[in-house]
């Protein structure tokens, strides 16, 4: 069946929101993709509106050949995750997407309150890049063809973040 999330969300993923949430949104995104940057505040709007009903998962889908900081940014977020600050870094990157650079990522790491020495070492770790690659390959397997691509409860949603918001509003009214 096309457009099914493979593999399903697990404890390998970065998950935001309540465990028992009934709506699971997975985004395959690229930190340097302008469309993902535009989707970021919409996802926050969705989270604010639906609160504990929503569980949000971000998987990396860096188009590294088109966006030179997509992969470093993805690795930086994973490195922040090792210090328990994945979502702080994730938010900072999208909020400062226009100033993405190596220096910019270090400045964000500092703002996120990371131990910079450890961060510097961690971003060299091959297993972080492997994690990003594994996300990318799972995206391909799930039928992701560009960014951002969303999955709702395991099924691909063919639309952007605003369409997703509208769809959720409509189904909430039913």
């Amino acid at each position: 069946m096309p457009g099914q999330l493979k593999p399903a969300v697990s404890n390998q993923d970065h998950i935001q929101g309540a465990e028992e949430a009934t709506i699971e949104i997975v985004e395959y995104g690229d930190y340097q993709c302008p469309h993902c940057g535009a989707a970021y505040p919409v996802i926050q709007k969705i989270q604010k509106k639906f609160l504990t009903q929503i569980k949000f998962v971000f998987r990396n889908f860096p188009l590294a050949e088109s966006h030179r900081f997509a992969l470093p940014a993805a690795v930086a977020a994973e490195a922040a995750g090792l210090q328990g600050k994945y979502w702080e870094m994730h938010d900072l990157i999208f909020e400062n997407q226009k100033s993405l650079s190596h220096e910019g990522l270090f400045a964000m790491a500092k703002s996120a309150g990371l131990n910079i020495e450890q961060f510097k070492n961690d971003i060299q770790r091959p297993d972080l890049e492997e994690k990003v690659d594994a996300d990318f390959e799972s995206g391909i397997r799930s039928g992701v063809n560009g960014t951002p691509t969303f999955f709702v409860n395991g099924t691909r949603f063919d639309g952007g973040a605003e369409d997703l918001y509208d769809m959720l509003l409509e189904s909430a009214e039913d």
Partner: peptide, 16 residues
């Protein structure tokens, strides 16, 4: 006109 078009996607996939 899109930034993540079909050819760009395949370009990312050469190693696969």
């Amino acid at each position: 006109p899109v930034c993540s078009d079909q050819m760009a996607l395949y370009n990312e996939m050469l190693k696969y």
